[in-house]
Design a protein around this nucleic acid. Structure first.
Length: 595
RNA sequence: GCGGGCGUAGCUCAGUUGGUUAGAGUGUCGGCCUGUCACGCCGAAGGUCGCGGGUUCGAGCCCCGUCGCUCGCGCCA
């Protein structure tokens, strides 16, 4: 109870009938019948109907107020007449008869975004007037959901023995990874801080410092272009690191947290621990992606050997195979009776959106193989193909033929597309999987050199011996991703805590010891004074909330998002600064003409 | 940086093959209305058809350019 209210707008029930109470909130909707007026008063907690008769001295001022004006209303809780209950409102059995009103904030202009009704609105207007948009039910609920999810994550991590620590926001630029946001230093002219892309080195140093188990709802900053599921600039990770652990220990620690939080906040069924594990190379072959959607039952297979046979004469594929390409088969169960347009549509999609040569196919019906390329494959080879691809009578099969990477990508996207078209993707479930054994290095075709394929701080499997004796491109890392419904939630790794192994790994990627010492000297040095083996991961909080709220757009789960051009339309960021501010920072602008 | 989609009243949208004065719903304003809960009824105001250029007797519609928003590609260890 405060001087503004005795109850919230979601609180009053039949048990309060007869009492005089005071509520405060926004005018959600007015229904003025001339003789009697109804006002729906809304606050965070709910809506209560206020009723005012024509003889009441507040009738005129109350009905004159526009929607979204803020008022406090003192009144008597009265029972609604039988038959006038509103089952959609928690307070629908009662209403408040006005005794007096107090206008706290009056709206005098047209509303740029109406709160009532949740009409679709242009996003730039919603962003400019985000405070109004946030009053609307769906967005309001999403933000509360996000808050509750974060509370639950904190509770679960605390209960599992993790400590939450803050790490610096102003830190040093790091050479690898995404583009940094830079902050000019006043005290050190010409030098810059960078906002952290992730607290990667700090969390490893926390392990070196002996705190054993760390987590943080960590803000991360990367100056890269936006996507529907990626805010420009900033996002949050559930950042986790643990000491004296192997990969399995990390999985065992995080699985119940993810499974638990998804189960807690969604009616969908979430996989329980332990989650499926898939080797990176198998994921690329069987699902055509390093973030496979396990709700989709389709499995891709390699059928290069079939099309390479001498008795198979489909030369379009043979030519690609001769140049080192592969053929991948995507089954389409029970689709043989689909109209020609089903197959044409997928082929058009492959050509247009995937910029592929096409998506060949064969259908199997009544013991016969049909389709544009069926006639190039004799019976015995066809039987072998059907068994490899896992298709039979009544099914069809699509083919992606390209370089290994190109075919995997096309087949993976086709798998998604075909799964959707045939409506065989599981609904209302969260399917988690770990993708493990990522390669430590990869071949950089542009620069003709070996590169780190992911995180250079990951421990190579086999340790120093592997680095010394194996072809670098065959070495796997203790590097893993957690994927949910085809969405990559997080990367993680068992870290390389041995300076000599790290220097060797960097040497293979073409970086001399002096470069490593210069760029990562702080951490490298720390590892020379006793570092525990450690590892962790960092699932994206925004992505988790999106999955649980079941929205494809990250701005629907972000309180104050920027638009795709990385502008905050409400706060007008970014903005120009004055010359004095620039001078203090020893900066002079060199904006290209026309910008 | 590149490609797709969209842009008509404050908002959501319709607008036929290029043809008279660009429409509807909603919101706003005015009037009526004592049981609504998307209240109802009557009336009014509200338009640089994103912007610029072109084709044409005539352009919301066709063409070129440009801007804005959005989705994707590149990018995101």
């Amino acid at each position: 109870m405060t001087s503004y209210r005795t109850h919230s707008c979601g609180e009053l029930r039949a048990s309060e009938i007869g009492k005089t109470v005071k509520i405060a909130g926004w005018i959600h909707r007015k229904r003025d019948h001339g003789g009697v007026a109804f006002i729906d008063l809304r606050d965070h907690y709910g809506i209560t109907q206020v009723v005012c008769g024509p003889t009441n001295e507040y009738y005129e001022p109350l009905t004159r107020l526009r929607a979204e004006s803020v008022v406090a209303i003192t009144g008597e809780v009265i029972a609604r007449e039988a038959g006038t209950f509103n089952a959609d409102l928690a307070s629908g059995e009662i209403e408040l008869r006005v005794i007096s009103i107090e206008v706290l904030s009056e709206v005098t202009q047209d509303l740029p975004v109406p709160v009532f009704g949740e009409l679709e609105y242009p996003e730039d207007i919603r962003l400019r007037y985000r405070f109004l948009d946030l009053r609307r039910e769906t967005l309001h609920k999403n933000i509360i959901l996000r808050s509750n999810i974060i509370s639950s994550l904190r509770r679960r991590m605390n209960e599992a023995g993790f400590f939450e620590f803050q790490t610096p926001i102003l830190t040093a630029s790091s050479p690898e990874g995404a583009r940094d946001f830079l902050v000019p230093s006043r005290l050190h002219p010409g030098q810059f801080y960078a906002l952290p892309q992730a607290p990667q080195q700090f969390k490893q140093l926390i392990m070196v410092a002996g705190f054993d188990r760390y987590f943080q709802i960590a803000p991360c900053f990367r100056d890269e272009d936006a996507r529907a599921d990626r805010s420009p600039g900033e996002f949050y990770q559930l950042d986790i690191e643990m000491s004296f652990v192997s990969q399995d220990d990390v999985f065992a620690a995080i699985e119940p947290v993810l499974s638990g939080v998804f189960s807690e906040f969604s009616n969908w069924q979430a996989d329980a621990a332990p989650f499926t594990r898939i080797k990176y190379r198998d994921a690329m072959l069987k699902y055509g992606s390093d973030k496979p959607d396990m709700r989709n039952p389709l499995i891709i297979s390699d059928v290069t050997a079939i099309f390479a046979r001498e008795d198979v004469t489909f030369n379009a594929f043979k030519g690609v195979i001769a140049k080192g390409g592969v053929v991948r088969a995507i089954p389409a169960p029970k689709s043989a009776d689909k109209p020609r347009s089903f197959f044409d549509k997928l082929n058009d999609w492959a050509r247009k959106e995937m910029q592929a040569a096409g998506l060949g196919y064969i259908t199997f019906a009544d013991g016969e193989a049909k389709g544009p390329i069926a006639k190039f494959i004799p019976d015995e080879a066809m039987a072998r193909l059907k068994s490899l691809a896992g298709v039979g009578d009544g099914d069809s099969v699509f083919f992606a033929c390209d370089t290994e990477a190109g075919a995997a990508k096309l087949a993976g996207q086709a798998r998604n597309k075909i799964g959707e078209e045939l409506d065989i993707v599981e609904k209302d479930v969260y399917r988690f999987c770990w993708v493990v054994d990522f390669p430590m290095f990869e071949w950089n075709e542009d620069e003709k050199k070996v590169d780190f394929s992911h995180n250079p701080f990951s421990m190579p499997q086999g340790g120093m011996e592997a680095l010394l004796t194996k072809d670098p491109l065959t070495i796997d890392a203790y590097q893993y991703d957690i994927v949910c419904n085809g969405v990559e939630l997080s990367s993680g790794a068992i870290r390389n805590h041995r300076p000599e192994i790290m220097l060797k790994a960097f040497e293979i990627a073409g970086y001399g010891a002096e470069v490593v010492e210069e760029k990562f000297g702080g951490m490298l040095n720390a590892f020379r004074f006793g570092a525990p083996p450690h590892g962790g991961l960092a699932p994206g909080v925004d992505r988790m909330v999106m999955l649980i709220a079941n929205t494809p757009n990250i701005r629907e789960v972000t309180m104050f998002p920027m638009n795709q051009q990385a502008q905050d339309l409400m706060m007008q960021a970014p903005s120009s600064v004055n010359i004095k501010q620039l001078r203090e920072l020893s900066l002079r602008l060199a904006v290209p003409e026309g910008k």
